[in-house]
Design a protein around this nucleic acid. Sequence first.
RNA 1: UGGGGCGUCGGCAAGCGGUAAGCCAUCAGGUUUUGGUCCUGACAUUCGGGGGUUCGAAUCCUCCCGCCCCAG
Length: 347
Amino acid sequence: MTVAVAVSGGMDSLLALALLKEQGHDLMAVHGHFLPPGPDWERVAAGLDSACAVLNVPFHALDLYRAFEDRVIAPFVDGYRAGATPNPCALCNPRMKFGVLFDAARELGADGIATGHYVRMEDRGEFGRMLVRGADRSKDQSYFLSLVPPEILRQSYFPLAGICKRDVLDILKRHGLTPPLPKESQEICFVPDDDYQAFLLARGSMPGKGPITLADGTVVGDHEGLWRHTQGQRRGLGVAWKEPLYVLDKDVASNTLIVGPKDELDLPGCVAGQVNLMVDPGSWPEVVMIQTRYRQQAGPGRVEYSEGKLLFRFLEPHGRPTPGQVVAVYTEDGAVLGGGIIEMPLG
RNA sequence: UGGGGCGUCGGCAAGCGGUAAGCCAUCAGGUUUUGGUCCUGACAUUCGGGGGUUCGAAUCCUCCCGCCCCAG
């Protein structure tokens, strides 16, 4: 049994490698170059190579940037162009780390994969082994893994399950390890300077300016492109009003941005596609916990599953679901039942 | 050019003789493996302009300028 540890160059995945080594697993380390060739390739690969040498683990660097372009970046750009708000990180996990990268590792002889995500795999009675929220709730990343197929998750290891974020550097130091990329991975990895708007512009042909209106059609200003805004957004509207205004909707057909006060933001449900089911929906509890944004408290609701779509009805006021974002479904005690991508809100 | 009203930060808007609230917008930080949200901080020595009254005015008087409304 050989486990491939996906190492990004950051501290978390390096710690995952060290912890598994400590536990005596048979390991290999794999790094996928997701971005086009550049100076970082050598730097990161060399850094990881020497770190792996310290631990006596074989290291492989793989060129996966074309797959990343097709499977993550292109959908990201297309999504924005179409008026959605895509979540590239949530796609990267099933398609790249637990997809293409794992496939490549298998060819190198691996039977399982491990990453530095802050989540757990736990035995949950009738459901079997389930993906569960990380112990450190503030760093929990199960939301981003809710689209990874269950059969892949059952071959996955998450050594950071019980680790607290602030201990990571100390533990690494104890192992004599230094991450090649000391900076915390955050924002969108393929977008320079955290400027997604500049990135999209550079990709060309984004839709242009149009009106900003209230829900009743009153024009209150102009926007410079729907793709610069997203549901629930407050800043950047440039509209001076008596109270803060938030984006309610984007009407792609008329290129209109619809805004309104905070209390008009809640909606009672949504429909999701590209569904990933961890267990048969027939066995789900009647009331599940639904999370439609990364940093959002999951709220109770009912679900119907039919023809590959999940239909959600919230039981409590719920921030406006945003097309393109992930919806993750949990049990009361934090096990992931499934996930999908929001296609449309229900009013 | 007869009558009435108004002119305070980029947008609203308090103040009505005692030495410029607040909100929105904007900017700068913080939080954050998506976009957002959220939190903190900054933001009119000055009240359309001139003159006057007063110990002291955005607040009173006066003239001018600019808007708006009603009558022509």
